[in-house]
Amino acid sequence: MERDQKRLQELSEALQKFQDDLQSAIDARQRLESQQAENKAVQKEFNGLDEDADIYRLVGPVLLKQDKSEAKSTVDGRLDFIGKEITRTETRIKDIQQSSEKSRMEMMQLQQKMQLAQGPG
């Protein structure tokens, strides 16, 4: 009985931790999504530009002139990276959800068991 209580405590702490992890993973996922949207907008803008259009990049307080091809490949690289990060975060979210579900099931079973044990007594 006491062991069950302790296990229940452990499980509920684990569940809380899973919830926190899940929230931070979801936040990260949302951040990545908005970055992706912004970079996509920039990429689209670059694709519609003339070959000789002047592109500047804000570095600290100054604007540096940059080659169109260079700017383009930077943005493409960023999008590539963000895409990978999104898949990674999604796997993480799925993992957390699975482990959380497992703990939840165990907790429910344990609670049922304890209720049954308590019932007749």
């Binding site: 970079n39 990049r57 804000l58 570095v59 943005v75």
Partner: peptide, 21 residues
């Protein structure tokens, strides 16, 4: 004009193009 297109990039555009943007 110089237009901020996002993520730190600025593009030189004619006023017509900028308005369209």
């Amino acid at each position: 004009v110089l237009v901020d297109v996002g993520t730190g990039y600025f593009v030189e555009k004619s006023t017509k193009d900028a308005t369209r943007f």
